[in-house]
Write a protein that binds this DNA or RNA. Structure first.
Ligand code: FES
Ligand code: FES
Lengths: 167, 167
DNA sequence: TTAATCAGTACTAGTTTGGTGCTATATAAA
DNA sequence: TTTATATAGCACCAAACTAGTACTGATTAA
C-alpha cells in the first residue's frame, strides 16, 4: 500500500539513533535496547545496511556498528534503497528503460516515471541528520500549511539552513 | 518496495482510458481490450473504483462504466486511495494520531508524516486529465533536468522554486 | 582461551497480491 | 416475455513477500 517495509522503518530508526549517539560505535544489542526494537530484526537490518556500505561494522568484543559517513551526507533514499532495492513506484517505472511489452501503448508510464523521480528526490533531499533531530518545526507542521511542504524540505537541504518556519 | 500494487496500476490505466475515450461509457470487456489488460482483473478493478464513487456503473445490456467526475477533477491520489486505502508510507504515519506504543520515544515519526504528506500532495496534484495526455513534455523529461521535476507538475498548482542541488 | 560480537544462511508462519470462478441482479432489445 | 448483455458480490486459490527465528561460523579485545 505504497508503504516502506517494517525493516526499512527499523533501518531509519537505527541509523537515526546512531546519528545522534555520543558513542562512535554501538553494538546491535545496545541499539535494539535503545530503540526498543526486537533484537533479531535489528541484527538482520544492521547487517544489510553494513553490506550496502552505509554502516561500518567491527567484529569481536567491543565491536559494533558505526555510520560510514557523516549523518548529513546520508539520505533517507539511500537507506530505503539499501533495504528494498531501487525505488520504483510501479513495476515499469525504473531508471533503466523498461522491458515492458505494453510500453508502446502505455500512456501513463512517463507520468509515473516523473512521479517516481519526485518521490526519489524527496527522499534524497532528507538527510539522516534531519531525520535524527527532534522536530523543532513541529509547530510549523501542525499549523495550516500555505506553502507546499516540499519547499520547506528542499529549501532546508539546499542551503543547509533550518527550515523557514523556525527561528 | 515502495510500490503501488498492480491493481492500482491497472486502475490508473483504465481511468485514463476512460478519460480520453470519445464514448461516455465503456464496458469492462471493451476497456480490457483497449488497454490490453487481463479481463478478470479489469472487472475486479472497475468494481472497486465504482464502489469508491470514482466511476458510475450502468448494468445490463449496453451498460458499462463512466467517470463520475470530469478527468481534471479526479486526482491520482484518489484512485490510489480507492484501491489501496489511505496513503501511509509507514505503519505509524497516518492522518489520525497513531496508536503506536513507541510514539513517545519515536524520533522519526513526525518526519515520516511530513514525507507522507509530500507524497500525498504530489499524487493529489496530478489529475487524471494530465495522466491521460501523452507527455507533450517528454522531450523536457529526457533532456538534462535543471529544474526539479516537481515544478513542472505543480507549476499550475503553485509557484515552486527549482532545487539547485539535484543534478 | 574466552567471551563478545558480527557474517551468513536457512527456515517458517502469516499476510498480501494477483488472479479465477460462480451466482445473482439489472437492463435494453427482440 | 424472453434473451443476450453486463455489472455486483462472493468465495476461492497459488505464488510472492514480510517479519521473524535459529543456528553455525568468523573475528577480535581482553
Ligand atoms: S504497463 Fe509497462 S510501461 Fe505501462
Ligand atoms: S515506531 Fe510507531 S511512531 Fe515510531
Amino acid at each position: 500500500m505504497l508503504r516502506i517495509t517494517r525493516e526499512t522503518d527499523y533501518g531509519i530508526i537505527l541509523m537515526s539513533a546512531l546519528a545522534q549517539a555520543d558513542e562512535a560505535s554501538l553494538s546491535a544489542a545496545l541499539l535494539a535496547r535503545r530503540c526498543r526494537l526486537p533484537v533479531p530484526m535489528v541484527g538482520k537490518t544492521l547487517k544489510a545496511l553494513a553490506q550496502a556500505g552505509l554502516l561500518i561494522s567491527q567484529r569481536g568484543a567491543h565491536g559494533g556498528y558505526a555510520l560510514a559517513r557523516h549523518p548529513a551526507e546520508i539520505t533517507v533514499a539511500e537507506v530505503v534503497e539499501a533495504l528494498e532495492g531501487p525505488i520504483a513506484i510501479t513495476e515499469c517505472s525504473s531508471a533503466e528503460p523498461s522491458g515492458c511489452v505494453f510500453l508502446e501503448h502505455c500512456q501513463v508510464n512517463s507520468h509515473w516515471n516523473r512521479i517516481n523521480e519526485i518521490i526519489r528526490s524527496t527522499l534524497g533531499a532528507i538527510s539522516l541528520k534531519q531525520m535524527s533531530q527532534w522536530p523543532s518545526s513541529l509547530r510549523g507542521a501542525d499549523s495550516p500549511v500555505t506553502i507546499n511542504p516540499l519547499s520547506a524540505l528542499l529549501g532546508e537541504h539546499s542551503s543547509v539552513q533550518p527550515d523557514p518556519t523556525r527561528r
